[in-house]
Design a protein around this nucleic acid. Structure first.
Lengths: 248, 248
DNA sequence: TCTCGTATAGTTGTCGGACAACGGACATCT
DNA sequence: AGATGTCCGTTGTCCGACAACTATACGAGA
């Protein structure tokens, strides 16, 4: 009767509040409640989803932190007006997934990918020795065949299978790791900068005064190990970045 | 004995989990636990702070979403290694407060501030009529007397007291609103862009090829009303922006 | 009729206790 | 030595209860 065993009205086997939050997010995106309108009360959600109030409250909390709803004590929760649910810079997803969610066709073109010894900085960053190798990637990322970003990535050798060859990597890096028993990204610390550097593009396909939004980020896995460093140069104007800022 | 009535080990009258999270954040910043080290268990925190486990869990949850700790079922919560606690772009604070937290002395210099009729776009954005006025602000924001940003702000007239004169506004806008019964910012939706436009600086104090990180944001209050639109041009390199990106 | 305080119902915030699910450590068996 | 089972500590989820808060309705008094 309860959702303990698996599927009641929600998906399969991830954390219960996460599934509930995702479901509500979908209903919000579908405009089930117009902006400012009151959502079902916590008690109603408990009944309709068959989960405990603690679970409901945690799901509502994350939606509130993401700015999709506001909750007022003694009154209820209300839908915020964010017409298009913004993907949001703070959600950690692969660039390809983000492009797909925006309704475009993701693609990529590898400029090079090779195994090489790590620099001193990379040894320190990944906690590896000078004899362990790293995979060095340079690629273009495209949406509907239009270049939206140039990305420079570095990963330590251990994230890949023992018999890995650089040529095996074709599509999304995250996708490859998920399929090959690699680490799962849990979070990333990103530095955001504005840059204007002609040399980021190796194909000379850009205008003189091209601007980039640089996301300089280090990804961590479940064990809190840094396993991927990326510098992604997004061509200004071809990719929208939004951040929902909330007070704690 | 319990923290119900007010202060036990925490501050005064904000939400309990928020106070707890802030306290733990401080202890984390003070390196009370080294990276990877286990924090007290939820049961321990319940005892030491005199709050319920629900409160403890909610506080830990927000710390986890901010990337300060990681929690593993059956094991415990562990301090993440983020040497300097990054302010974070997703925390909604006034620029002045952020500068102060970074250990610098905030300052600002108003270029102009005047009441004027709203543009059509502003009427739509704030939901006001053409006869209501808006306050138009242009100012420089400084840290230790160094200019770090140029900011263009627009607020509808109703956020200010009836007898308000533009000259009354001297320091932080958020501070003024808090002191004068104005709306409290709850969240802001920010667009992040890289720009290179000489005309943003009215004092001609910038070099030719100056770069900016533009935060184009709309602030909302508790009633979900937009009440402040700001375009802040941060001079690249003088202000660090980080985003902790997490999977939901 | 209007104003003001009070009662009331509805909702979220916090509390306490309980059990299930999970991961590690250790003992046991083969 | 290696595999297997058991125990124990911790987090995940559930349940029920009460406090705190808000808006509304109502009634007393002017």
């Amino acid at each position: 009767m309860k959702a303990q065993t698996g599927t009641d009205r929600l998906g399969s086997r991830t954390a219960l509040p996460v599934r509930l939050a995702d479901d509500l997010r979908g209903r919000l995106a579908a405009q089930e409640w117009s902006p400012g309108e009151q959502l079902p009360t916590e008690a109603d959600l408990v009944d309709s989803y068959g989960v405990s109030r603690a679970t409901v409250r945690q799901a509502l909390k994350t939606l509130e932190e993401r700015g999709l709803i506001t909750t007022k004590r003694g009154l209820g929760s209300f839908a915020a007006d964010v017409g298009t649910i913004h993907a949001g810079m703070q959600e950690l997803k692969s660039i390809s997934a983000t492009i797909a969610e925006m309704g475009h066709r993701p693609g990529m073109r590898y400029h090079h990918r090779l195994l090489r010894p790590p620099t001193a900085q990379e040894q320190d960053m990944f906690g590896i020795g000078p004899d362990e190798q790293v995979l060095d990637i340079q690629r273009k990322i495209m949406a509907d065949d239009i270049v939206v970003a140039y990305s420079y990535d570095v990963l330590p050798r251990w994230v890949f299978p023992a018999d890995f060859k650089p040529k095996d990597l074709t599509g999304s890096v995250f996708g490859f790791l998920a399929d090959n028993n690699g680490p799962t990204p849990i979070r990333a610390l990103a530095n955001v900068k504005a840059v204007s550097d002609l040399s980021v593009a190796w194909d000379g396909a850009l205008a003189q005064d091209e601007l980039f939004l640089l996301l300089d980020q280090l990804h961590y896995d479940e064990q809190n190990r840094p396993f991927m460093y990326t510098r992604s140069y997004f061509i200004e104007g071809r990719f929208a970045f939004t951040v929902m800022r909330t007070t704690r």
